[in-house]
Simulated assay, not measured.
Amino acid sequence: MCGRFSLVEAMYDLQQYYAFEMRDDFIYTPNQNLSPSQQAAAIVQLNGKRYPASFRWGLIPPFAKDEKIGYKTFNARSETVAEKPSFKKAFASKRCLIPATSFYEWKKSGKEKQPYEIKRRDGDPITFAGLWESWRNGDDIVRSFTILTTEPNDLMADIHNRMPVILERNDFNQWLNPEEDQASLSQLLKPCVSKLLSVEEISGDRFKRSGTS
């Protein structure tokens, strides 16, 4: 799974890495501890161009009665994403990139849980495969996203039984292309190679303010 991540990259670096065009309405706030229900940056493609957007983490499908469903849909299993009612339309036409500096995972050891921080070894941003949706709440429209997960690679398997789908730069065009067929997209939904990532044991004090352990 992926229930916490950080994004503290400079805006200039993000724009260079993801090759997006800025929008006047986009607000970016670096955050070392992003959690479901918070706003986070995403990159979408419209008319062949990439743009940044701020979406709520926890996908709210159009048919939802209220936004609480987002607390259960902040991740989507890649094995079933094409069939699940909450995700299948987004998988077909509303795919996005979710940039991150790192993500966090907790390993259970008896009654204790030890947090780890996972980054790319090369220093580039991590890019999660994401889906987004629009949900109407009266006169307001809430745009939200989910992060796809897959089986763990050898590095992550010792910590957790799931990990986020991480895309490489040469995957971005294929993932964002609205004309891409689902069979081709499914080839991207696999664990990244272990050597791409580094894992560091960190103190749980980092999360005390948010109540996470």
Rank of each mutant, 00 (worst) to 15 (best):
P30M: 07
G58W: 11
A19H: 09
A90G: 12
R4A: 08
F63V: 00
T73N: 08
E180K: 15
N170G: 02
S210M: 14
Q16A: 14
A183V: 10
Q114C: 02
E179V: 14
A53K: 06
R120S: 10
A42D: 03
Q174S: 13
K88R: 15
E9Q: 14
L148D: 04
K49W: 03
F145T: 01
F20H: 05
R77T: 10
A92S: 14
L189H: 09
G123T: 07
S6G: 14
C2D: 05
N75R: 07
S37F: 12
A64E: 02
E168K: 15
S93K: 15
E117T: 09
P62C: 13
I60Q: 05
L197C: 05
N170Y: 06
L46D: 14
P62S: 15
Y51A: 04
E79V: 10
E179D: 13
L155P: 00
R77E: 03
I147R: 01
A41I: 01
A100C: 02
K108D: 00
C2T: 13
I98Y: 05
E83C: 02
D181Y: 06
E79D: 13
L176I: 08
P30Q: 11
V81A: 11
P30T: 08
I141G: 03
I126S: 00
R23Y: 01
P152N: 12
Y71P: 01
R50I: 05
V44N: 03
K84C: 02
E67D: 14
I147C: 04
L189A: 04
S144L: 08
N170K: 15
F5N: 07
Y51Q: 06
G204S: 15
S198D: 12
P164A: 08
F145A: 02
S184I: 13
Y18S: 01
D122W: 05
A129G: 07
E180T: 15
C192Q: 05
K89A: 13
P191G: 06
M163P: 01
A76T: 12
F87S: 10
F91E: 05
F172L: 04
Y51M: 04
S6D: 00
E21Y: 03
A76S: 12
P152D: 08
R162N: 03
R56L: 05
R56N: 05
N75T: 11
